[in-house]
Nucleic acid binder design. Structure first.
Lengths: 327, 327
DNA sequence: CTGTTAGCGCGTTCAC
DNA sequence: GTGAACGCGCTAACAG
């Protein structure tokens, strides 16, 4: 249980602690001979510098907090991976925490992060405005919003262009002759659902389509499933707010003997891991999930390093993926 | 950018920093009046105690490191959730890191963890022996192995009883009249693959089955897919080393026009999220994934608190899940 | 080029 | 019951 400190190394090497510090950080020239002695001592004692002491001293922790709603939602692992990969590359540590879609938990996490002196935070919140965010800004902790923007909070963000995604999806379907649409969307107070809804309505107006419906439910398999169980009159296309919803719709319709895409087309949004293996494979809009995480990490570090002064929004392009759930 | 420290609070409240400290930690009685003044000051200044200063002082960080191979593998999100949920409940923080199945990365992570003074580590490694683990033990950092045991390392662990899982699966299949088996397994140097292989062979011997094959590949969809593309003579059952392998096998066989389970039964292991929605839905062995994480977190904290002195192995029971990919 | 020293924010004696 | 002072491990400024 004996933590080895810089003192022990100094003693072992017969130098002062500052010399050890210099060797560790390569912060000043140290005579070859001493450096070697220090390095040997470090090896011998199995010394690891204490990050927490360094952080206390430097006033920076090289740690980025990342708040996500739920890691078990298949959308997030890849985004986390993107964040982590970039941060690791830059010598930063990721502090990840699930908010479980709960505002209080979100607040708690933010406070923990503040206590832990994180240098910056990447925020994929529950979708509702959280006053704790002000505190963050007040303390000078940098923020990047990821996958959603929060009204009233003026901060940098990385999102995917949902409007274009919906537009391309609908254009494709429209050009193939589909004329009636049902949009089964995610939760009403989420950024993604709202923005997709807007893009949907805009397209309907643009093409002067009257035969359409829209419903806010939830971004889950079950939401899609329960919808598919009940729907009476089938439109040409059912748009799932995300892939999970589409899966649920497909399964419930198939159980009712309805054929996809022969009787009705079904689409998703996200292109998560299994969408290409679904039966039928899912026509959907691919978000560059990993890249979104990667870019967000890149952006937050830029802001922290002062290389990015103004607020910046990065908007990534989605990609229409045509598979076998549509005709 | 002005961090508020205990000093500021003390000044604001007109007391000494020790009094503030006592209020924060409830470590000694403080006169009602002062306590209230301190609490007011904390509120007013929006003060959060510095965890890193506390850690430095106390010599404990209330942080647990968790090494996993890859968060984008659908097996892991739930296990992470289990770990995180328990740790949060106990006021601990989780430090998660992906090793990307790379031994060097693993070592790097361990060193980072040591530098960060984690109090304990939950370890789901690449499967190969890592000398850096000795260092951990040497430093008195507690370890719990999760989902795998490492030969030669004497430490506590939480695993699922793979043998029973395989046994029950095979018994079921055998009792239904299946007599020839092909086991498409994960990577040769992983704990899970080895132990499942052993259980498989044991059963074959026990029932005196001669008509069986075994192959070490990889725990991935692609591994299963490439196998299914090539296999000539179909056995009664193809056992996938995990669900992903089974998915790949199913898809490739179906593409060849082979019907499942009519022409051949296919099984998996794990019961990840999509297995119940697969087509056909997958017969598999469910591991209590979330619970494994939860128990591991519970165990590591027990060890840290000194409530668990001896090395302890927790073995969770799997559950046979019969669905439509077998006959 | 190297050593001495102050202090980052906090908890914990030890006096009072 | 409360405050002053020390030190956790480290870096940065300063002195030599």
């Amino acid at each position: 249980m004996n933590r080895i400190s810089i003192k022990d190394v100094a003693k072992e090497a017969g130098v002062s602690i500052s010399t050890v510090s210099r060797v560790i950080n390569n912060s000043a020239y140290v005579k070859e001979e001493l450096r070697i002695r220090v390095e040997k001592a470090i090896k011998k004692l199995n010394y690891n510098p204490s990050t927490i002491a360094q952080s206390l001293r430097r006033g920076k922790t090289k740690t980025i907090g990342f708040v996500i709603p739920d890691i078990t939602n298949p959308f997030f692992p890849n985004i986390v991976k993107g964040v982590e990969d970039y941060l690791k590359k830059e010598g930063y540590t990721l502090l990840l925490s699930n908010s479980d879609q709960d505002l209080d938990m979100e607040t708690k996490i933010i406070n923990t992060f503040i206590s832990k002196h994180i240098d910056g935070i990447i925020f994929t919140g529950t979708g509702l405005y959280n006053p704790a965010l002000e505190k963050l800004i007040e303390k000078g902790i940098k923020i990047v919003f990821l996958d959603r923007i929060l009204e009233g909070v003026n901060a940098s963000y990385v999102i995917c262009d949902n409007q274009i995604g919906i537009y391309e999806l609908l254009s494709y379907l429209y050009n193939r002759g589909n004329r009636s649409y049902y949009f089964v969307n995610g939760g009403k107070n989420t950024f993604s659902a709202k923005i997709r809804y807007e893009a949907f309505v805009k397209f309907m107006k643009e093409k002067n389509i009257k035969n359409y419906n829209h419903l806010y439910k939830e971004f889950s398999y079950e939401a899609g499933y329960s919808f598919g169980k009940k729907i009476k009159k089938l439109p040409d296309v059912i748009i799932g707010g995300n892939d999970l919803i589409a899966y649920g719709i497909i399964d419930s319709l198939q159980e009712r003997g309805i054929k996809i895409p022969e009787n009705v087309s079904v689409t998703g949004f996200d292109d998560i891991l299994f969408s290409k293996h679904y039966k039928p494979s899912l026509t959907t809009v691919r978000q560059p999930i990993y890249e979104m995480g990667y870019k967000a990490a890149e952006l937050i570090l830029k802001i922290i390093d002062g290389k990015q002064k103004q607020i910046k929004g990065i908007v990534l392009k989605p990609q229409l993926i045509i598979r076998n759930s549509t005709k």
